[in-house]
Amino acid sequence: MNVVFKNVSKHFGVINALNDVSFEIKSGDFVFLVGPSGAGKSSILKLVLHQYHPSSGHIYLDGEDIFLHHKSIVDKLRRNIGVIFQDYQLIADKTIEENIALALDINGVPASEIPARVEKVINQVNLNSRRHLFPSQLSGGELQRSALARALAVEPKLILADEPTGNLDPENSWMLIKLLTDINSQNGTTIIMTTHNMDIIQSLNKRIIAVKNGAIATDSQPVVVDIVKVEKTKFKKKLKRK
């Protein structure tokens, strides 16, 4: 899914959360949104999700200005977006399995197919032993993985991940990142992820949009690696050692 922000501003009273922000994320991109707390990263995700209404400017998803459309179109767009919320947003009196099934039901997946789809994502995030538990019975990391499972279950065109590794240990953080990169490369799913985890950012070589004080500070494209040049350098180093 293609995401375009055109001169978007968002004010909360006198506070400017975002100020004249413009960028384009192409379909199939994996983009990190970085910046200090309160910089406006979550606001960008909430605007994409139509959770916030921009004070000015336009937001296009696959070329459609989402704030010009009827609510039913917004519902349809949301069904194509998988969200991993910072605060998980899991329904307290439903089990993890039921939370995932709900997302599938909302997406109109036939009831007969839901158990298999739930089974698949639960196994993907290693939550098989926790599937019948309620959110209050899980740890922060397990909740994060549950939210990820729900987002993946609907096979979305776009995944919005707000600090998805915030509550995860390194092992689970890497598992989550691997899952996201696999989905990005295999399905062409667009991924926008906010994070403070510099290890992950540096190791992945993806586009990084840095947000500061509600504005885009830098927008760095991934470094195009010249494989021939790298291999040539490696070969020269090996020769020198000999």
């Binding site: 609510k71 519902d75 949301r78 977006i81 969200v83 947003q89 009196d93 439903k94 909302i106």
Partner: peptide, 16 residues
């Protein structure tokens, strides 16, 4: 309210 707002964010229609 919370359940409804989560469902709406997941794309549930008003009627749903």
């Amino acid at each position: 309210k919370e359940e409804i707002s989560i469902s709406r964010l997941l794309g549930a229609s008003n009627f749903y």
